[in-house]
Design a protein around this nucleic acid. Structure first.
Length: 283
DNA sequence: CTTTCGTCCTGACTGC
DNA sequence: TGCAGTCAGGACGAAA
């Protein structure tokens, strides 16, 4: 489910509901998500008040009143679902349940168990092994804007295909497979182009495309793939705005070329991931 | 150093 | 309808 826009959507839902609340009961049902929970996770979380909730790349970071950070990564299929009232049924794959002092609860549901949680002192935030190597944050009010020259600087000298460079979290943090494809389409750049050749006007187009596709997706509440839902249980709807992702064989929505003219949306596999692109428009 | 590949896990979908 | 095979949003760690 979650790339940056979906994580941001979940973050906003959690922030609105949980900031100011005390976490009065924490139940962990499976100790074996992607990584083991830290020692005494539930006991340490229990009784803490949530001070703030933010996001770095695809990580949800909740600051607690004892100076700790509660980190959640949703992996490929993780969901945070808010509710209130009785908790008589435990859902399938509901690995963590947290109840608050004002009668709400948040359930962490993750069929594939690729997600994980951590709990550590805020002083160690910048040095956290999952965060320390992350690259630029592409959107957000409190980050330096991603510009063409900045992007060109990141890619300078890189021989990797552009698509692979976009997925490299050490360069730009938070882009995933879907939005990397969509950004390349908006920027009219080929996914197979050598990353280091993206300079000048091309870099400016790509920087703008990355920002705009992420912002548009956040505004739409993210993309719903299979069972993705927001914390409220509502569906995001940006998947209807995908121009190329999952559209192999269709005509290009921008130039309308299709297979009869050896164009249209093609699919190829790059470093094990599907890439969708218009062979005519993206160069 | 850079880059690719296999891997973790379950569920949904496709095609026979 | 059943069943085997394929694929999926991420990211780590081994290997080349």
């Amino acid at each position: 489910m979650p790339e940056l826009p979906e994580v941001e959507t979940v973050c906003r839902g959690l922030r609105a509901a949980l900031v100011g609340c005390r976490l009065v009961r924490v139940t962990v049902r499976r100790p074996d998500l992607r990584f083991a929970f830290p020692k005494r996770f539930a006991e340490r979380l229990q009784g803490r008040r949530v001070v703030a909730i933010g996001r770095r790349a695809k990580y949800i970071l909740a600051e607690l009143d004892d100076g700790a950070i509660w980190m959640t990564h949703l992996g490929m299929a993780g969901r945070m679902v808010l509710g209130s009232g009785s908790l008589n049924e435990v859902g399938l794959h509901e690995h963590v349940t947290i109840e608050t002092d004002d009668g709400q609860h948040v359930r962490y549901i993750d069929a594939r168990r690729f997600g994980f949680m951590d709990l550590f002192p805020k002083a160690g935030l910048d040095a956290h092994p999952r965060l320390a190597g992350l690259g630029l944050e592409p959107v957000g009010a409190d980050v330096a804007p991603l510009t063409g020259p900045v992007l060109a600087g990141l890619f300078a000298g890189r021989l990797a295909p552009l698509k692979a460079a976009l997925l490299d979290q050490r360069l730009i943090a938070g882009l995933g497979n879907i939005y990397a494809c969509e950004a390349l389409f908006r920027a009219r750049l080929s996914p197979t182009r050598i990353a280091g050749t993206v300079t000048g006007a091309r870099a400016a187009r790509l920087a703008e495309a990355i920002r705009s596709v992420l912002e548009d997706a956040i505004a739409a509440g993210g993309s719903s793939l299979r069972d993705y839902v927001q914390t409220s249980g509502e569906l995001g709807y940006f998947q209807h705005s995908w121009a190329v992702y999952g559209r192999e064989g269709e005509a290009c929505p921008a130039c309308n070329c299709d297979r009869r003219v050896t164009g249209g949306i093609n699919r190829l596999v790059q470093s094990g991931r599907s890439t969708f692109f218009c062979v005519k428009r993206q160069r």
